[in-house]
Amino acid sequence: MAPLKPHWAQPSHPDIHQVIVNEAEFTSKSLSKVTVPPFGVFAKMTFPPCTITPEATYATVQIGKNRHISLNSDLLYLNHSCDPSLILDTANLDILAGPKGLKPGDELTFFYPSTEWHMAQPFDCLCQSASCRGTITGAQGMDPRKLEGFWLSGHIRQMLEEKATGKPADAHADVPDLVGDATAQLLRAALSKAEDVASKARAALDGYTASTLVSLEDEATKGTIANAA
């Protein structure tokens, strides 16, 4: 398959990763530009640019039993690996560093069956890791034993249970999803701003506290010298 043709302004996430496209070999990959601790947030799947799509394509991520999103950004250049560096937390719309964390230069990958139930184009994995699962399909077509040891999205675990038992695994499975709801989007944006403000306030407080301690130490030193004189 030819490299993805972006319809968004590039680079979309210049501070956190670099996209490398090899037109001659029809390949692409994405490399981290940041250090992230294990299970720390690498990026958020935000609305916009993400949009809800009615069906799966090669450029979507599944976030529920019948829900998919288009990332509409350079995050689409995340490749598959059976030793992934990332976790797609579809429940919270976060992209997390894996258990090894991230450092600059690490390739950004995730385990495709962790989010995708069905894939129209199965492929042979070439990751060459000790945990390589060979032919990769959506979770529906994978031997359950080949999914063991991987982080799986909640909807994938639910659908695997339903496939195994033949019964609905969640009585609330049909509750409407609010990811694309306008009010939910506004609240999510407000929360993001609040988190940013809190982070800046925390940094300001730390700086103020540090400077106050230095002033107090200086005053204490001056008092000691004065008493000695």
Rank of each mutant, 00 (worst) to 15 (best):
F150P: 03
L4S: 04
G105M: 08
T51C: 09
D206W: 08
E116R: 05
A182W: 05
A182T: 12
K100P: 03
G64A: 13
F111T: 01
Q128D: 14
A59Y: 02
A198G: 12
G180E: 12
A24R: 15
Q185G: 06
H118W: 13
S192V: 11
P49G: 09
E107G: 04
I16L: 00
L191Q: 15
A139M: 05
E148R: 09
D83P: 02
I136T: 04
S81A: 13
S215A: 11
G149E: 07
L126W: 05
Y77D: 00
Y77C: 00
G98D: 06
A194Q: 14
F150L: 04
E161C: 12
I156S: 03
A120K: 11
L102E: 01
M142S: 10
G166H: 08
M45I: 02
V21D: 00
I52M: 14
V179K: 11
L213Q: 15
N79Q: 11
L93W: 03
F42W: 03
V36L: 01
N79T: 11
M142Y: 08
S192I: 10
L191W: 14
D177A: 13
Q121G: 08
L78I: 10
P99F: 10
K146E: 11
W117K: 08
P14A: 01
D181P: 02
R202P: 03
K103C: 06
A2Q: 10
S199P: 04
T137S: 15
P6Q: 03
G134P: 03
T57C: 04
G154N: 14
V19I: 01
P99S: 12
D177Q: 07
C82D: 04
G98W: 02
E219I: 13
A190Y: 14
L147W: 07
H118K: 12
T209C: 10
V21H: 01
E116N: 09
A198I: 11
L86N: 02
N22V: 04
D181T: 05
D196S: 14
P54M: 11
E217Y: 07
D177K: 06
Q62R: 12
S30G: 07
P11L: 00
S153H: 05
L88Y: 07
D143K: 13
T109E: 04
P84G: 06
S81V: 10
E107V: 05
S215E: 09
V175D: 10
T51L: 08
Q121T: 14
I20T: 09
V34T: 09
T51F: 06
T224G: 04
C125W: 05
N66M: 09
L147E: 08
L76C: 09
N79F: 06
V41K: 10
G166F: 05
H80D: 09
V175N: 06
L216W: 08
N22K: 07
T27C: 06
G40E: 02
D177Y: 07
L191G: 13
F47G: 02
R188K: 12
E55M: 08
